[in-house]
Design a protein around this nucleic acid. Structure first.
Lengths: 142, 142
DNA sequence: TTGCCACTTCAAGTCAACTTGAGGTCAAGC
DNA sequence: GCTTGACCTCAAGTTGACTTGAAGTGGCAA
C-alpha cells in the first residue's frame, strides 16, 4: 500500500493533482489510515495511462470515460484512430510552420515581409489555416 | 479606412478580439469617426502576422514585443530558430504518440495493456516524456 | 503525553486569451 | 426630430486543469 506521498514521488504528480484526480473519478484510493488515503500500487499504471491520454490531447473527462468503460483503457479503437488522425493533421500544420520559421530565421531579405516565401506563411495564417497552439509552447519554456 | 466590422470581416477575428488586441498594444486604430475606431488597411497584414505568431506558439506578449521592436515582425532570428527547434521536438513527440495510438487502434491484443508495444508508450508517458497537449485538441473538436 | 508534521477538507485563486453583459453614445436614414 | 443599431467602455465571466491557503486531524517518535 502506498500513501499519497509515495504515489506522488513515484508518479511525478503532486499530491494536489492526485486528490484532484480522485475527485474527478480518474483514480481511487482503497482506504484510509486515519485521515490519510491509501493507494494500491496499480494506481501507478493508471496514472501513466492518464498521462498518456493527456499527452494525446484527451480531456480528463474523456479519459475518465475510457477508464470507466473497460477496466484498463479499453478505449474504443475508433476513438483512438480519430485522435491519431487529429494528431496527423496537427503534425502537418506544425511541420509547415516549423519550415516557415526556419526559413524566416535564415532568409536574407532585410525585412521578413519582403520575402515571398514568408508572405505566403503570413497569409496562410491570416486565412485561419493555422489555429493557435497555446499551452504546449508555454509549458515548453517553463 | 476600415471600421471595426470591416476589419473583423476581412481578418476573421471578432470585433471583441480586435478591441482586446488594441488594448494589449498589438494593433492600433488611427482615429475615430464619432466613437467608432478607424483602421488603416495595413492592420490586416499585421493581424495575419499575429495569427502566424499565435500558430507558432508565441504568446501575445511575445508577439507584441516583436511587433514593437521592428515595424514588421523584425523578430530576431535567434528567437525564430529557437521556436522552430521547440516545434521540432513537439513534432517528434506527437509523431511517436500518433504511432502509438495508431497501433493501439489496430492491435489484436484483447486489452491494450497486454500489448508490449502499448505498455512501452504508457510507461514513456508515465515518465513524463510526453507533456500534455491541451487546448489545441479541444479546438480540434469545436 | 506532548508535539510535530504530513496529511486532510473546502473554498478560492491562477493562467491566457478572450467573451459577455450592462449601460451609454452617436451618425445616418426616415 | 426621432429611431435604429452599430459601435463604445468597463467590469466581470469563461474554460480546464490544477494550485494555494486556511483551518483542522491524527499517527507516531521522544
Amino acid at each position: 500500500m502506498l500513501d499519497i506521498s509515495d504515489v506522488a514521488r513515484r508518479s511525478g504528480q503532486p499530491a494536489s493533482t492526485l486528490r484532484y484526480y480522485e475527485e474527478r473519478g480518474l483514480i481511487e484510493s482503497v482506504g484510509r489510515r486515519g485521515l490519510k488515503r491509501l493507494f494500491e500500487p496499480g494506481v501507478l499504471e493508471r496514472l501513466a495511462l492518464i498521462a498518456l491520454g493527456r499527452a494525446a490531447g484527451f480531456s480528463l473527462d474523456e479519459i475518465a470515460d475510457m477508464l470507466r468503460t473497460g477496466n484498463g483503457m479499453h478505449a474504443d479503437r475508433a476513438k483512438l484512430s480519430e485522435k491519431a488522425d487529429e494528431l496527423d493533421a496537427l503534425i502537418m500544420r506544425l511541420t509547415a510552420l516549423r519550415d516557415g520559421l526556419r526559413h524566416a530565421a535564415v532568409c536574407p531579405a532585410p525585412s521578413h515581409m519582403e520575402c515571398p516565401k514568408f508572405r505566403r506563411f503570413v497569409s496562410a495564417a491570416g486565412r485561419g489555416l493555422m489555429p493557435p497552439l497555446d499551452r504546449e509552447s508555454r509549458r515548453g519554456k517553463a
